[in-house]
């Protein structure tokens, strides 16, 4: 009980700060839409072609958006050594991990909830199916599970912004592949059963990396 109330306090603090500044959601959203538009130029907007590459575009965009927003997550904590202040609070290190992760998850889901209709509109696709929503939510959980861990690692290095993508992309390859393939099937109107092997991979990834990150997080923030 106490665990979750502290977790929510940390997530609430991040959300409040985000409402004040709109630093993450607004800028990442603009970035996301720009990337979609640029991809549109790259593939010269032929409807048949678009249907072929749309899932790839979607997930490349979301993966980039994830890196951008996750990078901010711990940079905020480094100003005025707020992370030290958090670590002095009578909570376990895991509470900090889960709280930061939930806040990032919330931000990413808000960004995606706005970007997906924009994507549907610009590419003339019906993306708002329950299948696609399930894929998006489960993949985003995987993104923030490892992303929060690596974000905490990256802020303690010399090249903050560079380190996160170098770590994040190779590790998340399996869920990026799965999300692209599952989205392709979902856009083609395939039933759940066809999607399930991909969703299983994403689900397995989520569970494993939530657990591993939960276990090793303390080592990253403690000197």
């Amino acid at each position: 009980m106490n665990f979750w109330s502290k977790v929510l306090t940390i997530a609430w603090k991040d959300a409040l700060s985000e409402i004040r500044t709109r630093e993450i959601i607004f800028s990442v959203l603009v970035f996301t839409l720009l990337v979609i538009v640029i991809f549109n130029f790259a593939f010269s907007a032929n409807q048949q072609m678009i249907e072929l590459v749309a899932p790839g575009i979607l997930w490349v965009t979301f993966a980039f958006a994830g890196v951008l927003s996750l990078n901010r997550s711990f940079i905020m904590e480094k100003e005025q050594a707020c992370l030290d202040g958090l670590m002095m609070c009578p909570v376990s290190r895991e509470v900090i991990y889960v709280g930061k992760m939930l806040a990032s998850l919330l931000f990413m889901l808000v960004i995606e909830a706005i970007a997906l209709p924009g994507f549907a509109f610009l590419f003339n696709l019906a993306v708002l199916s329950p299948q696609l929503i399930a894929i998006t939510v489960s993949t985003t959980i995987g993104f923030v599970a490892v992303g929060t861990l690596f974000s905490a690692l990256a802020v303690n290095t010399k090249a903050r912004e560079m380190v996160l993508p170098i770590l994040f992309f190779p590790i998340t390859v399996p869920i990026i592949i799965s999300a692209v393939q599952a989205s392709k099937l979902a856009l083609a109107g395939e039933p759940w059963t066809k999607l399930s092997p991909w969703l299983q991979i994403i689900g397995t990834f989520d569970i494993i990396f939530l657990a591993v990150s939960f276990l090793v997080f303390a080592f990253i923030i403690e000197e």
């Binding site: 390859v173 399996p174 799965s178 991979i201 990834f205």
Partner: peptide, 8 residues
């Protein structure tokens, strides 16, 4: 997981 995903 990488091996599984790339194989599938």
């Amino acid at each position: 997981i990488v091996a599984l995903a790339t194989t599938l």
